[in-house]
Amino acid sequence: MKPDSMCTKLSDYEYDLPKELIAQQPLENREDARLLILYRNSGKIEHRRFYEITEYLCPGDFLVLNNTKVIPALLSGKRVSGASLELLLTEERKESQWKALIRSNAKLKAGEEIYIADNILSAKLLKKGEDGSWLIQFDNGYPIKDLLLRTGKMPLPPYIKRTDNNGTCYSSDKERYQTVFAQKEGAIAAPTAGLHFSHSTLERIKKYGAEIGFVTLHVGMGTFLPIKTDDIRKHQMHKEYYECPREIMDKIKETKGHRHRVIAVGSTSCRVLESVAMHNETPQTSGWTNLFIYPPYHFRYVDVLLTNFHLPRTTLLALVCAFAGRENILNAYEIAKNKGYRFFSYGDCMMIM
C-alpha cells in the first residue's frame, strides 16, 4: 500500500460492506458489544467483549467522553399541496429560526410555506445554502424545543431502517440512541462510541483506578456529512460547538506529566481534545471547531482511541486512519467483516492502542 501521506484521494477511503453487517438494532445490553483491539504499532488484533474493557486500562488512565445529548430533531411536515416532507433541524440560528435538511420528492422554493407536525404550526423557507440545508422561519414565539420533545423523532442515520408501523422501535431509540451520561442537549447524531457504556461499566472503570472526564461536542453536519471532493484535502468541515472545561485541560496535562494515557472515547471527543491542543498556549474552554483530521496528522493529546466502525468515504474513517494508519484500519475492517462484527452506529467497536 502507498504511504499514508499520499492517501489524499477519496477512493483511498473506500471499502465494501455487506448490508447484513449494518446493525439495525442495539444489543439488549450495551456492554455486550464486541470489542476489537488494534495495536497500531504492530497491527496486532485481539477480539473481546466491551465489558472486558478494564483489562486494557491502567490505573491513572484518563477517559474523556462526550456528554452531548441528542435532541429528537426529526419532524414530519407537508407542503401546501399536501405532499409529505421530512425535516431534520440541524442548528438553531436565533429565536424561531433554524437550519434544516429537508427531504422532499419535489423541488422546494424560497418563500414557500410548509406545515409541521399535523399542522401544529407553519414555517417559511427563507433560503437554501450551498450545503443543501434550508434556513427556515417558524411561527414567532412557538417553543420549537417543546414541539421536538412532543412530536420529534430521534434523527437516526439513513442506514438504520424504521417504518411508521414499528413505533416501538422508535420509542426504544429515544433511550438507546443516547449515551447513559448524555447531559447537554444539542446533538443531531449520537456520539456512538459512548453508546456501549452502562452505568455499571463506568463504575467498574473508576474502581479500577482509571479516571473519567467529560467534554461536549454537539454532533452536527460536520461529523456525519460524507466527503464529496475527490481530493479529501479540499473538503470543508462544518463547524460544531464544543466545550472543554478548564479542569479537563488540567487533568490531561497531569495525566501526561505522569506518563499515563489519555483515552478519547469517540471521534468527537478526539476532535475536541485535538482542537484544544492546537491552541495550547491560549486554550479555549468553548467555541466552534471545524477540525478535519486525516493522514498524516500528529496527535498531541490523544494516546488511545475508542471508536465504532465507520462508513466509507467519511471524515470519521479518515480520522481513524490518521490515528492507526490506513493499512492497519482497512485490514482490521476486513477481519471484522469476516468475523461478522456489526458496523456503524448500533454496531460493535474497536480500541486503538
Rank of each mutant, 00 (worst) to 15 (best):
N67I: 04
A73P: 06
Y39P: 00
M350F: 11
K145R: 14
I53Y: 05
P226A: 05
L225Q: 15
P143A: 08
S286T: 08
N280E: 14
G222E: 08
S81T: 15
V320D: 13
Y159C: 09
K174F: 02
A117H: 02
C349R: 02
P18S: 11
S81Y: 05
D146R: 11
C244E: 00
L291G: 10
G77L: 06
I263V: 12
E175S: 11
Q178D: 01
V80S: 13
V262P: 02
E46T: 08
V276I: 11
R79T: 10
E334H: 15
L147V: 15
L10V: 05
Y333N: 11
A332S: 15
K44C: 07
L147W: 08
L63C: 07
G111M: 05
G266K: 00
T179A: 00
H310W: 12
I252Q: 02
L147N: 01
H238L: 09
L89R: 01
R162W: 07
V302I: 10
L101D: 01
R326L: 11
L273K: 05
S286M: 08
K207P: 00
D231H: 09
G257W: 00
P72E: 05
T179Q: 02
W288H: 12
H199V: 13
C58M: 14
L27W: 03
V265W: 01
P312G: 12
I352H: 13
K44I: 09
N290Y: 04
L126T: 01
F224K: 04
K124G: 00
H199N: 13
H298Y: 10
E31C: 05
Q25L: 14
I335S: 11
E86G: 03
Q236E: 13
P143N: 11
M353G: 08
F197K: 03
K153Q: 11
K337Q: 14
L202A: 04
K94V: 04
E112H: 03
E31G: 01
K153R: 13
A23K: 07
P283I: 01
R40G: 02
G347E: 10
S122I: 00
V215C: 06
F292C: 02
P3W: 04
I37Q: 04
